[in-house]
């Protein structure tokens, strides 16, 4: 999907700055005045090396962290200055998360890991449907310890999308996986983005993944270096690294 001026952005970030331990010897400027708009239905890749500030940016977008300076809004809602309760509700109802290390609950089966979230969501899909979307219909009653890494990550994606989020935030989703498994996970994310129209943001240090995105935002030293729009999204199965 190409960028159009008539689209209103879902996320609108202006001058986002994040400083850890301000005023001390160990002060770290993780983000340094980031301006960013993210649009409904697009698939964006935040590309950067370790320490570029991409994770901090994703955490702030997801309501897990608050910026030291700057403003961030989601639709018409100000996220900067929102309280603990509002941020919890934002994470609960709006954002879906996929983590590098899956973070499944080990004592629950695949189906139950998804059901745990659908229980608290206002308009969820059935856990079975979500698991079907990531191709795990035949593994629903397995515990995490009985699944491969790729399968666990797909359960995590199913868990993230089951509540029909408007935003899917993926932090190094293939970081712990081999190429082949990584591709199946990215396919699942791409399919959700395409079929459900969910804004998908993938952060990665892996430049090969950039080809599947609508837009690629490169970060370095806490600033956005460049924004590049792909003419056409490359099919995920053609990626390799």
């Amino acid at each position: 999907m190409a960028m159009n001026a008539e689209y209103t952005p879902l996320f609108r970030a202006r001058g986002i700055t994040k400083i850890y331990h301000p005023g001390t010897e160990t002060e770290v400027r993780a983000l340094d005045g980031v301006d960013l708009d993210l649009y409904e239905g697009e698939l964006a890749v935040l590309l950067g090396a370790s320490g570029s500030g991409k994770s901090t940016l994703l955490n702030i977008l997801g309501g897990l962290d608050v910026p030291t300076d700057g403003t961030l809004s989601y639709r018409d809602e100000e996220l900067t200055g929102a309280g603990e309760r509002e941020l919890t509700l934002f994470r609960r109802n709006v954002a879906g998360f996929v983590f590098q290390f899956y973070n499944l609950i080990p004592s629950l089966t695949a189906r139950e890991n998804v059901a745990l979230i659908t229980e608290i969501a206002p308009d969820p899909m059935e856990p079975e449907e979500a698991l079907g979307l990531v191709g795990l219909s035949d593994r629903m009653d397995h515990f995490p310890s009985q699944l491969s890494g790729g399968q666990q990550q797909r359960v995590a994606i199913a868990r993230a999308i089951a509540k029909r989020p408007e935003v899917l935030l993926c932090d190094e989703p293939t970081g712990a996986l081999d190429v082949h498994t990584g591709i199946t996970v990215l396919e699942a994310i791409e399919r959700v983005n395409r079929e459900l129209g969910t804004l998908a943001v993938i952060i990665t240090h892996n430049a090969a993944i950039a080809a599947m995105a609508d837009r690629v935002l490169s970060l370095s030293a806490g600033r956005i270096l460049s924004i590049h729009s792909n003419e056409k999204r490359a099919p995920v199965n053609t990626l390799s690294w």
């Binding site: 919890t88 934002f90 609960r92 973070n103 609950i105």
Partner: peptide, 16 residues
């Protein structure tokens, strides 16, 4: 703690 923090990230309230 890991599971619990994950749940907090996923939008569970502190009480839940």
């Amino acid at each position: 703690s890991r599971s619990l923090a994950t749940l907090r990230v996923l939008g569970f309230t502190r009480r839940e």
